[in-house]
């Protein structure tokens, strides 16, 4: 069933069961997002980017966790929403190795897009920069991982699990030390990767790459 809702004073239609974020994106209303994939059963809402304000809800909510309802009235660009998004982005950038010139994702990077959209400088001044010690992880036979570029959105983990039943990639450790790890996936024969590069394609930034030799 098609539902009607109002987003930024614009009448849009969406199928029942869709998330509000998807409905907006389908109707060319851009809402910044990093960790959302359409096929996710329960989006993790971990990037804290897709906030919107819904009439009747006291505070902004991440739109990927809300299903569309008839006659919903939504605003995507209120000051409260923008403030939350800018803070989230600044926090992400404070642990990001901003070296765009030497990054293969330069100019097709979601972080750059969102920063431009929200008018946030790539090098926030107020926050302390915190980078991980490991710059490049090359333990995986086919993949290169750059921990300091990773935004920990979890898209690669989700998409690998969806495709192969279990994920070669996983979150490891906790807090600031959290990384995406392939752990001991060094034995080529036991890997399901083959010439699959779904995880690399899913990465919204340049944190994953295929090794050139393979």
């Amino acid at each position: 069933m098609m539902l009607k809702l109002r987003v930024d004073n614009q009448e849009i239609e969406a199928r029942e069961g869709k998330t509000l974020l998807q409905a907006c994106l389908d109707n060319q209303i851009y809402v910044p997002n990093l960790c959302y994939l359409e096929d996710m059963e329960s989006p993790s809402a971990s990037c804290r980017m897709c906030f919107v304000e819904i009439e009747g809800t006291p505070q902004p909510v991440p739109s990927c966790t809300v299903q569309v309802k008839n006659d919903m009235v939504v605003k995507t660009d209120t000051p409260a929403v923008r403030q939350l998004q800018r803070t989230a982005l600044r926090l992400l950038l404070s642990v990001h190795d901003v070296d765009c010139k030497n990054c293969h994702a330069n100019k097709k990077c979601e972080l750059q897009n969102i920063a431009k959209f929200l008018k946030v400088g790539l090098k926030p001044k107020r926050l302390e920069r915190y980078l991980k010690e490991t710059l490049i992880d090359e333990t995986h036979p086919f993949l290169i991982h750059y921990p300091n570029r990773c935004v920990l959105c979890g898209k690669c983990v989700h998409i690998c699990r969806g495709k192969h039943g279990e994920s070669v990639l996983t979150f490891a450790r906790r807090g600031f030390d959290t990384i995406i790890s392939t752990y001991s996936a060094t034995d080529e024969s036991s890997l399901t990767c083959g010439d699959c590069d779904t995880c690399v394609k899913a990465c919204p930034v340049g944190a994953l790459a295929v090794k050139e030799s393979s």
């Binding site: 279990e166 070669v168 996983t170 490891a172 790890s181 392939t182």
Partner: peptide, 13 residues
């Protein structure tokens, strides 16, 4: 019957 990296992910948490 799960992948090693998953065990590692849980244990390191």
């Amino acid at each position: 019957g799960i992948i090693e990296s998953e065990v590692y992910g849980v244990a390191t948490f």
